[in-house]
């Protein structure tokens, strides 16, 4: 079990059973997401902010871990890609969620391209029920850092999206990893863009 944990609850396993995801409990009974692989044991997932995640409830065949969030949209994480806001990925691909939120991921299809879940947006006051949704033809983002808008192609919009992040002080624009946003990050972005994916 992870250090400091009081208990661990698996919630989903990959096709082979070699990657397991779930929640671990702190002594304050807070839930945190984890992944466990047969080769590496427990893998610490990165923090998602102060209101953090709830637990990792599903895993795609490629090792992408899906993390529920009660007060916000779900996250997806893969070791080589890092952490993504699921709704950012959908938005980048033109999917408008309308009033739905992707708070909870219920399950992933065997090939990872279809996803079911629940939205805790409740349009009818007092209805007290979550709304169910299905997303089909989903593709996990590729490991392509200059594809800033996550739409699977490199174009001028990636450059604009990168500049927005840079201007807003968003450390996802810290491409050289030195913890600061400097001209070196602009150079790094240009080089990555030119190299392509």
């Amino acid at each position: 079990m992870p250090p400091g944990s009081e208990g661990v609850q698996p919630r989903a396993a990959s096709f082979s059973g070699n990657l397991i995801v779930g929640d671990w409990f702190s002594d304050a009974l807070c839930l945190f997401p984890y992944a466990w692989s047969a080769d590496r044991g427990f893998i610490e997932l990165p923090p998602a902010g102060p209101e953090l995640a709830f637990g990792s409830g599903s895993v795609s065949p490629d090792g992408t871990v899906w993390i529920d969030r009660p007060s916000d949209g779900a996250l997806l994480w893969r070791e080589d890609l890092g952490l993504y806001e699921f709704e950012d990925v959908l938005e980048a691909r033109g999917v408008r969620l309308s009033s739905l939120r992707t708070n909870y991921i219920s399950n992933i299809s065997p090939d990872g391209t279809a996803i079911i879940g629940l939205s805790d947006d409740r349009p009818h006051a007092g209805s007290g029920v979550d709304r169910a949704w299905l997303i089909t033809n989903f593709a996990i983002p590729t490991d392509c850092p200059p594809d800033t808008d996550l739409n699977g192609t490199l174009d001028a919009f990636d450059f604009l999206a990168f500049l927005d992040r840079f201007a807003e002080g968003d450390l996802r624009a810290d491409l050289d990893g030195d913890g600061e946003l400097t001209g070196a990050d602009l150079v790094a972005f240009q080089a990555a863009f030119d190299a392509g994916c």
């Binding site: 999917v95 969620l97 065997p110 709304r131 593709a139």
Partner: peptide
């Protein structure tokens, strides 16, 4: 990519999806 809301069967108020086929 599509998102579809899954509404409950007639006579029910809510539904909770648990699993799906490969194609969705």
């Amino acid at each position: 990519q599509h998102i579809v809301e899954i509404l409950p069967p007639d006579g029910f108020e809510a539904c909770s999806p648990r699993d799906l086929s490969t194609s969705g």
